[in-house]
Simulated scan of single mutants.
Amino acid sequence: METVNAFGLACPKPLMMAKAKIDEGARELSVHVDNEIAVKNVSRLAEKYGLNVAVETIEGGWSVNFSEGDRSVAAAAAPAAAPACTPAGCGYAVFIGKDHVGEGDPQLGYNLMKMAIYTLSESEDVPSSVLFMNSGVKLVAGDEQQIIDSVNKLIEKGTEVLVCGTCLDFYGLKEQLKVGEVSNMYDILGRMQEAAKTITL
Rank of each mutant, 00 (worst) to 15 (best):
S30H: 13
A116N: 08
S121Y: 07
N152V: 01
G104C: 08
E2D: 05
G142R: 07
Q176W: 00
V137M: 02
L120Q: 08
A6W: 06
A54T: 14
D143S: 15
I117K: 09
D143F: 03
P12Y: 11
F170W: 09
A93M: 05
P87V: 08
Y118R: 15
G91T: 00
G97N: 13
L162V: 04
K13L: 14
G8N: 07
V101D: 03
E68P: 02
P14W: 11
G190M: 07
G158L: 00
E124I: 05
Y186L: 13
M113C: 05
V4Q: 06
G60N: 12
D187I: 10
I199M: 09
K153L: 03
V101H: 10
Y118M: 13
A74C: 09
V179I: 09
T119L: 08
V140M: 00
F170Q: 10
S121D: 00
I37K: 04
G190V: 03
M133T: 13
E122M: 11
S63E: 05
K197R: 13
L168E: 00
A26W: 09
N134F: 07
D187C: 10
Y171H: 04
I199A: 04
D23K: 15
A18S: 12
D70C: 04
D23R: 14
K114Q: 13
T57W: 05
A6H: 00
A195I: 09
E175A: 12
V137Q: 00
E122T: 13
L189H: 08
N65D: 09
Y92H: 12
L189G: 11
D169N: 11
I96W: 01
L177E: 03
V137P: 07
V151F: 03
I117T: 06
S135F: 06
F132I: 05
V39F: 13
I188R: 05
Y92L: 01
R27Q: 14
A38C: 15
V151Y: 02
S128R: 15
V163A: 03
G25P: 06
E175Y: 06
G89Q: 05
G102T: 01
K157D: 04
A74E: 08
H100C: 10
K114A: 14
G91L: 05
P83Q: 00
K19A: 15
E181V: 12
A18W: 01
E47L: 13
L139I: 01
R191Q: 12
F170R: 15
